[in-house]
Design a protein around this nucleic acid. Structure first.
Lengths: 226, 226
DNA sequence: CCTCAATGATGAGGATCTTCATGGTGTCTC
DNA sequence: GAGACACCATGAAGATCCTCATCATTGAGG
């Protein structure tokens, strides 16, 4: 299993390389877009881990170029937290999954495995829950083919819950994942955004999808399977 | 020079350790609060790099305990992006500086050097510019002793400019530092927040402190030295 | 000096997010 | 079943942030 890391932070590259090596991956690296493109051209990788903010050609263009040249190697993008929302077009250029910095290394490995496992079938991870569909890359949420415009918090919460369907998340864990900070124990932000989310799903008779688990937290269920 | 890293992400610990070693530091590490406290008790470090979100006892409590026990070793906190604002009290528990993840390794080294150099004199880095004073740890901005309430963006921009007084920052660099994303070239967010900032400084005749450098960006000057 | 174009400043409006207060609902005990 | 309590849902208001359109300023070239 051959992996290419394109990332200008050399320290991060070193950590990742060692981590991957421990996981039995064969690792190669590039420190900017030009070098990255070159390596993609000359070698067949099983997966590419690509930072967006790199010197010269940025990550989006790297994916685009790779795709134009017929490479369909799975690509996981690393992105800073705020870059997500306003880059939807860029995100559509062909990446298969993404991870927000700072991230958990185990999660990165999990996503690489998920992508390479199903490589050659459907790649981009689309989350489904009955008629509800969520595309984390396009950052789109649809029900019955109709786009439901979600705001950042709503989207992030729904994505988290849908990635682990039927698994309960405490407010702490939701805050930690979505807000990337610790829970002070008093705020009810999560509740409020869950309400917003339900309000938007209700017209599709889907608000039951987000279920309250009293005394614990929230989870997403797929009503079709009930 | 002996440094202790308290951080649960073992990969990050390894990167940092190696980086520090290259800089001639003697490195020790702990993976949670309890272990950290223990090591602080038993050893005299020159500096402690401390993540806030660690298992068990969190970073704030570690600093607090260390200070209660009379340790005045400089502490640099690592914090996720959103944790800043609503943790002012926690931040006041005795840390000397902080760094927002994801950060640049060179910046961490620079801050360690700054802290240890002036250890035993004034430690906590207070940024001054004539009558204007900014405390990044307390997240407070004062003029003539009076607190000027700044919002997140305003504070972050002012802090960046004041850390490098008289140095021009382009909108790109400001966006990269404060928003931690790349600049799309169209938005005028920076301009707007600079205006907000000036509006708040004007009552103190301090809006001239933030200077426009036409065609380039903004910088902070200290009018007293003119 | 005048004009034009580029650049920055500003005002207004709206989108999003958060907090707070209140009321409802489930759960436990007696 | 009634009451007490914890937990959750909701409405409303305000804080913060961002976009857009417009106006002012600056600098260059004629």
């Amino acid at each position: 299993m051959k992996i290419l890391i394109i990332e200008d932070n050399r320290d991060l590259v070193q950590v990742l390389s060692e981590g991957f090596a421990e996981n039995g991956f064969d690792v190669d690296s590039a420190y900017d877009g030009i070098e990255g493109i070159g390596k993609i051209r000359s070698t067949d990788y099983d997966c590419i881990v690509l930072d967006i903010m790199i010197p010269g050609i940025d990550g989006y263009e790297v994916v685009e170029k790779a795709r134009e040249e017929g490479k369909d190697t799975p690509v996981i993008m690393l992105t800073a937290k705020d870059s997500i929302e306003d880059r939807v077009e860029g995100l559509n250029k062909g990446a298969d999954d993404y991870l927000v910095k700072p991230f958990d290394f185990r999660e990165l490995v999990a996503r690489i495995n998920a992508l390479t496992r199903r490589h050659s079938e459907l790649k981009r991870p689309i989350l489904n829950c009955g008629p509800l569909m969520l595309d984390p890359i396009a950052r789109e949420c649809k029900a019955d083919g109709e786009i439901i415009p979600l705001r950042r918090r709503e989207f992030d919460i729904l994505e988290l819950l849908m990635r682990f369907e039927n698994q309960v998340f405490t407010r702490e864990r939701i805050i930690a994942h979505v807000w990337k900070k610790e829970y002070d124990g008093t705020s009810n932000v999560v509740d409020v955004h869950v309400k917003y989310l339900r309000d938007k799903l209700r017209p599709f008779n889907l608000d039951v999808v987000v279920v309250t688990v009293r005394g614990v937290g929230y989870k997403v269920i797929c009503p079709a399977y009930e």
